[in-house]
Design a protein around this nucleic acid. Structure first.
Lengths: 211, 211, 211, 211
DNA sequence: AATGAATGAGAATTCATTCAT
DNA sequence: TATGAATGAATTCTCATTCAT
């Protein structure tokens, strides 16, 4: 469909990956067929294999490109969001929600296909997630450090997992609340987590036995 | 393997589902083959089709049984955890983490297979998640109500999504920290979220412009 | 085409192999398609894969069955052909030529497909040939021994290669002389080789310098 | 790899055929890919097609060149080996074994690819073999004639087939005895066959009933 | 209640081959 | 002379599913 004739390789590759991201997002890895992707890309199957090697290679290419984009957006925002850790975390989360809002398909491909796929693919997904978790954990740790609390690496890691999981899940909430802006979502999440973390750092502790 | 001859239907069905949960968890829906499930269950394929109708039917049966178990554990704990919403939430989360710790396969089947599957399956997964989200949102709302805050349904729903997502993600953290007990994880999560929520309800608000 | 319904596995396997030998003989390994074999066997492709695993597995099965038959005929004749080595060699060669005359396809499959195929296949072909060569070399060695000549293992091996190669090639000659019986061919070959060998053993030696 | 730019046609053709002989020898006709040949030749595929028309055309060109070389060596030696047929036969066989020892790849291409190929290719192989067989049969006939025996064309043809087949097979024996010179192999073969033939011509006849 | 035999439909992948430049 | 881009046509193989007993 896209199909102008005689397109240079790099450009064609991007076209193919563009289409593949959509198809993988709509159908999932297994249900997607290379046939359909080739047809939608307006080329023949052998081109897909010539340029991307295999169905798995194609999926990996999609994954890598989208993961790079997402991680770059996230880390870029974290780097430029200000001096204070909380401001940087806020900026990074905002970048994340904005990315998801804008690139629904990319997010679906990145999010819901980890298991049941090959080692290489699972590794690529895990790596992207790990990069984000590490970034978040670093910011959280910086926040903790400012407060002189005894909490450490493991705690920061725990919070990072919770935060990233919450963000993941909130992408669904966003999908069912199209009127909510990424900014609003980010602010709510920061309020919920950061303030809570702050109080805990100050020694306020909750426990079932307290009551 | 299990294969006594002449086993009554109900019992056979459970045997089949037991095996299927393991295989689906290990391989994922598509990579799992009915052949393998039948063989591991010690029966022939036609029996699987006679009792469960189709591969999708089989997966749905797995999904329903495990979702029911999880939701039941969750709601049961929420019902008996005490009077205060926070105690009930705590009990429910604890039940969740304990379930995941004990039934890894069930959780994998429920957790990582949402997309790329049929309508019916996606619906079943969504329904289970919805039940949990509703329960959580209810508790959160009750907690909010106690405080006389102006926050409402939508806010409770937001918190519920964040909390459930955090819990999802923390199952990974647990997997890489086998020494951590479900109790400890639950307590940390409650500390982080509930305290934060409480402060927010009391009017403490965070915002990037604050700095 | 052969296709009665509901045929027991062993019987079907033999039917498939029967057809496959013909098709492989006519087309060669690569040009033969599993599709064609299945169709001629009157069954569907999945049956071929269910019973024989792969195209290579199917070819190996053909090879093994035909090689076993040929080697058995050859060795059986060598065992029952009489006491003297030359009589046993004669009987074995006769069995060989008779086999080739009667099972043209089997011979083609065994003969002209050694290279360019997989390790496993090449190994199976080589093994059959090695068995025949060893048998022949043994008989030749026995003949040599009777004469008290100084020739040894290596010479016997040389003669065996020459003899087996000659026999291979004479199958072509037979194909273009349909009136010639296996008996006649065998007799001629024995005359040519055995008598010659005898003279050499008796000390008559030929050399280009002789003239 | 060879790739100077702007190479004249004849030279390029020979480069391509050089590479193709190696690849066909290593992989066999079907497993060899035009892609690989083009790449090793350091040119693009369209050049191969421009000069050699098709994969089959390329293979035929290889076959013809190598067959011509072999037949020329064989016939050249037969023509210059001396007056007596046996000397000429000896010279020719020597040329053959020397050729095979020196041009392994050429021999593999000529020898082990007859069946499963197209009509045209099979015909070319058959033609080369026929030329050699005719030459040998002629020499044998000359040898017979000298003796005044009643044997005739058919017998000479029989001996030629046996001899050529023996020689074919002995190339394998040579491969596993790298210390043996072509001269030695030739001498042994002549001893075995020519002397035997001579005795037969003189009336000595072997038969199983003799014992 | 149970199964061995059987298949329709489609999946990924590979080539020899050609077009446009 | 030379090639990067492109494809039609197979081919092997898999799998959920059913029939006949």
């Amino acid at each position: 469909m896209t199909g102008r004739r005689r397109v240079p390789r790099r450009e064609r590759e991007q076209q193919i990956i563009d289409v593949a991201v959509q198809v993988f997002a709509k159908r999932g890895y297994h249900a997607a067929s290379v046939d359909e992707i080739a047809e939608l890309a307006g080329i023949s199957k052998p081109m897909v294999y010539l340029y991307l090697d295999s169905k798995e290679g194609l999926f990996l290419a999609c994954l890598r490109r989208e993961a790079d984009r997402l991680v770059a957006a996230f880390q870029g925002a974290a780097a430029t969001g200000g001096a204070a850790p909380e401001l940087r975390l806020h900026a990074a989360l905002l970048a994340f929600f904005a990315f998801v809002a804008e690139h629904r398909d990319s997010w679906v491909v990145l999010h819901r296909q980890a298991s049941e796929l090959s080692e290489a693919i699972a590794a690529a997904v895990a790596e992207a997630r790990r990069a984000v978790l590490a970034e978040v954990a670093g910011l959280v740790l910086a926040g903790i450090a400012e407060s002189g609390s005894p909490l450490g690496d493991e705690d920061a890691d725990f919070v990072a997992h919770a935060l990233v999981g919450a963000a993941d899940s909130l992408t669904d909430w966003m999908a069912s609340h199209p009127d909510q802006s990424p900014e609003g979502v980010t602010l709510r999440l920061m309020n919920m987590v950061w303030v809570g973390m702050g109080r805990v750092l100050e020694g306020e502790v909750w426990g079932p036995e307290r009551k």
